[in-house]
Design a protein around this nucleic acid. Structure first.
Lengths: 201, 201
DNA sequence: ACATCTCTCTACCATATGGTAGAGAGATGG
DNA sequence: CCATCTCTCTACCATATGGTAGAGAGATGT
């Protein structure tokens, strides 16, 4: 509890980063301890087991993500496209874009059902709100009609697909520098705008 | 080399499935051997090392995927929307949709650069062709204008995002049964059609 | 000064991992 | 019948893993 970030927090940060980049099962406690610069047993003092550490990392990441997105949506005007833009811009912010946070969603699929359940619990309110909002906007004719739940899922899949498969973009010659990120963000916005725009009748 | 599928092929099948579902690092040789029903050393007879097995699994999966998609594109009429539909239908075929094949793309990000390079090599011709095709269709005004490479990347991200994050869809109440898959496929088609449709001027 | 509490450490352990060495079963060919 | 080749096995090994036991350092309260 000295001037530096607390040991616990440094462990969490390192674990979040490593789990997100390499995968939960691929990262050992020794590696995390070495990264933080403490003994492995210091980890086990703060977190009773690796499972517990994983659980904490995922839960806090989900909570952080929820806060960021929620704030972005609330600050945006009540227009579907504006809101999408706000969320995309929020997700592209460096603090969120760091490999860990979005990369962790890739790990969810491998968790035991009970753990995955808890994680979804953290994001469920956001999802429900997004779906209800999409449904209302579809009714109002401001968003292309469709199954609001699946449309929300597809938007999510697109964004997380980018997060978890940046190689796909690199393989088409894209580079993850500042200019590249700006171009990707604007292309993603155009993509989602078009995908959601109401059909011309 | 008896009546059953050869041991080598059974090992490859099991490894593909396990790697795709649980991740390369999370699956041990013992687990694969148990799944196939042979001794671990039989694996090491057919594949000198785990690394070699991983390499083979990924390379063959990429090749299989390339063949399936290539055939679908060639069989489809020369229209952007028809081609997209053909690819989506191909990817949704059970043989491809099995957790392993598409799930493996999730592993690529964790490979050493040299390995990832080889994999992208297997898919590069497909990607290049898709990008060139998109660019031509954009020029012809049949596809919404944009950076063809990034648009291709976004389509890919959407599809792989679905493959690697089915939880996202389940968390909005979607179920992976036959009817659910049909609905998802048609929603995905509408989504991509809209995202790619030329802007109304 | 003493006791207590918080935090990090060294020393160790049982198990699982990827991998090696080499034997044995069964077919094939001279 | 023997030699060879293919394939799978049992028996080991060095290392790495998650986890336990317990000691010591430093602050804090009495």
């Amino acid at each position: 509890m000295d001037g530096r970030r607390s040991t616990r927090q440094r462990i969490l940060d390192a674990a979040t980063d490593l789990f997100g980049r390499r995968g939960v099962e691929a990262v050992s406690l020794d590696v995390i301890a070495a990264e933080v610069g403490v003994a492995k047993q210091t980890l086990l003092y703060w977190f009773p087991s690796k499972d517990d550490l994983v659980q904490t990392v995922l839960t806090e990441a989900a909570a952080e993500l929820a806060v960021v997105i929620d704030a972005a949506v609330r600050a945006a005007p009540d227009s579907p496209l504006e809101r999408i833009e706000a969320v995309v811009r929020a997700v592209f912010r460096p603090a969120v874009r760091r490999p860990a946070l979005l990369g962790l969603v890739r790990e969810v699929g491998r968790l035991a059902p009970a753990q995955a359940e808890r994680l979804h619990g953290a994001l469920a309110p956001l999802v429900d709100r997004a779906v209800a909002y999409l449904a209302a906007e579809m009714d109002a004719g401001r968003v292309r009609r469709g199954d609001p739940r699946l449309v929300a899922g597809l938007c999510y899949a697109t964004v997380t697909g980018i997060a978890t498969e940046p190689e796909a973009l690199r393989s088409v010659g894209w580079q993850a520098d500042v200019a590249g990120l700006r171009r990707l963000r604007s292309e993603l916005l155009a993509f989602l705008r078009a995908a959601l725009a109401p059909a011309v009748t």
